[in-house]
């Protein structure tokens, strides 16, 4: 094969290599721009990903749903419809295996974790349970939230999530009305 042909194929490969991250960014930016923002009550703990660094894992208060339907498969895709409660936090309206045409509420594409026959609860995996943080701050964030809870004030730690057509972007995690990144710094200086 001639060099020029190899080079042309290489240019195609280059374009694909650039396209994938660009597309990732584009999708996320569209959701941030046009999506609706919801607040999810949460609790962080910190693990590590070998390639992407430190993140905090977010356990959401609404990751279970009471239902008598027990035929859920592990990792099955489900549609979680949301409404806001009186305090402005996200609450599950209903969960379905397919899109509901006459439900105009926002929805999230999520996965089934398991179904407990004992408590009749469906455990769901929300697709925005990772929040990446600077490596020195991730563990501090977990500690800060734990200390905050010991103050016996109501839990107001929540995630700000943008939602559009089932896709989501986790934009920030908020404690006491400030971003967790700044909260950790404030906590350190105290």
């Amino acid at each position: 094969m001639k060099t020029i042909h190899i080079f042309i194929i290489f240019i195609i490969v280059v374009l694909i290599q650039l396209f994938i991250p660009f597309q990732m960014i584009f999708n996320q930016e569209t959701i941030l721009e046009k999506g609706t923002v919801y607040k999810f009550k949460t609790q962080p703990v910190d693990p590590t990903d070998p390639f992407k660094g430190k993140y905090i894992n977010l356990n959401y208060e609404i990751n279970t749903y009471k239902t008598n339907d027990s035929l859920w498969q592990r990792n099955e895709v489900i549609y979680v419809y949301l409404v806001e409660d009186s305090l402005g936090f996200a609450k599950i309206d209903t969960i379905n295996r397919a899109l509901i045409s006459n439900n105009s509420n926002d929805y999230i594409k999520a996965k089934v974790r398991w179904y407990s026959n004992y408590s009749n609860e469906l455990s769901i995996e929300l697709p925005f349970n990772r929040y990446y943080m600077e490596e020195t701050k991730a563990y501090d964030a977990e500690v800060a939230v734990r200390n905050r809870q010991r103050d016996s004030l109501p839990n107001n730690t929540h995630a700000l999530v943008y939602i559009k057509d089932g896709e989501t972007v986790l934009n920030d995690v908020i404690i006491d009305n400030i971003s967790i990144k700044d909260y950790v710094e404030k906590d350190d200086s105290e």
Partner: peptide
């Protein structure tokens, strides 16, 4: 580059999905 984009937008994603995309992008 893919890792950093997932970091910036907090894209969770499986390790296996990430590795597969990476491998396929570099196969040629």
């Amino acid at each position: 580059s893919m890792a950093l984009v997932s970091q910036i937008y907090n894209i969770p994603g499986d390790l296996s999905d990430y590795l597969l995309t990476w491998i396929l992008l570099c196969l040629p």
